[in-house]
Write a protein that binds this DNA or RNA. Structure first.
Length: 271
DNA sequence: CCATGTACCTGAAGGC
DNA sequence: TGCCTTCAGGTACATG
């Protein structure tokens, strides 16, 4: 499930291949994949740059923008096929050079939006988790204005954009915070620790080319390696790397949530 | 306003 | 083998 690091890896890889290319046209094979929110046409427009906000990848065209969200199983593959059969190909962005950017998506949740106004498109998306403007002070302010479980808070993209199920579980584990801990009850020291660890976890996942559990591929079709370094996610019943107790799995907001009951106590001195 | 529930989708995995 | 159920979780939208 692509989160911020996976999207960032794809963005970095695509930059060298896609920037300055000119779009010939976009072929759509599953009608819901392409969402046209703009009166113009992307055809014959040059791609000036590639940006990112949270889990959205943003292609900056001459006049407007193509925004891709991979959701659960989306893949952006440059100039080649992937391991999926051809019938998972939902759209192709064809370039005048003959290069192409193929959008595969087994579950059809992913989207390519064509928009002319970024501001109105991103009204419900908060600050990017790796942006310079996302500071410890900003994090504390967000937390103090909210009183819900910390995992629910981190999942909600309108506060902080880019975190998903895997990296939230990892960040809370190394910070020693129970996923149901109320935002208002996390003390100053723990807040700072969590803030630092979120940035650390995301940056290290980028360095490892992302987490490939099932569908995620880089734009070259490659695998990430970060799945080998996960501390809690997917480790239900296995021994905690810190204390040896069994990792537990519960559901929060209908998401599988992994934690160590000893290192992340719901109430206790460690918090 | 907020919290919760469900739709969107398909493939993999497990039970019997 | 094979059929059925459950699970995976990001986001939009509906409901209470």
């Amino acid at each position: 499930m692509p989160e911020l690091p996976e999207v960032e890896v794809i963005r970095n890889e695509l930059k060298s291949n896609i920037i300055n290319q000119e779009i010939k046209n976009i072929e759509v094979y599953w009608h819901k994949t392409f969402v046209n929110l703009c009166q113009e046409s992307p055809n014959n427009q040059q791609i000036f740059d590639i940006d990112r906000l949270g889990k959205y990848i943003i292609f900056i065209l001459e006049k407007d923008f193509l925004i891709v969200h991979l959701r659960m199983t989306g893949q952006l593959i440059f100039n080649k096929n992937n391991n999926y059969s051809k019938n998972h190909l939902r759209a192709s962005i064809l370039m005048h050079s003959g290069d192409n950017l193929n959008f595969y998506d087994a579950r059809k949740f992913g989207r390519i939006y064509y928009v002319d106004d970024l501001k109105s498109f991103f009204t419900k998306v908060g600050i990017d988790a790796l942006s310079q403007e996302f500071t410890n002070k900003y994090f504390e302010e967000l937390l103090s204005n909210k009183n819900c479980g910390i995992k629910s808070f981190l999942l909600d993209q309108k506060y902080i954009a880019g975190l998903g199920n895997i990296y939230i579980d990892e960040s809370l584990f190394i910070s020693g915070i129970h996923p149901k801990k109320l935002t208002s009850e996390i003390n100053h020291k723990k807040t700072q620790l969590l803030f630092t660890n979120i940035k650390k976890i995301l940056n290290s996942a980028i360095a490892n080319m992302g987490t490939t559990i099932s569908d995620y591929r880089t734009s070259g079709g490659g695998f990430g390696t970060n799945q080998n370094l996960l501390k809690v996610y997917g480790r239900e019943g296995n021994a905690c790397f810190k204390c040896g107790s069994g990792i537990k799995k519960i559901r929060i907001n209908s998401r599988g949530t992994h934690y160590c009951p000893v290192c992340q106590p719901e109430n206790g001195v460690l918090q």
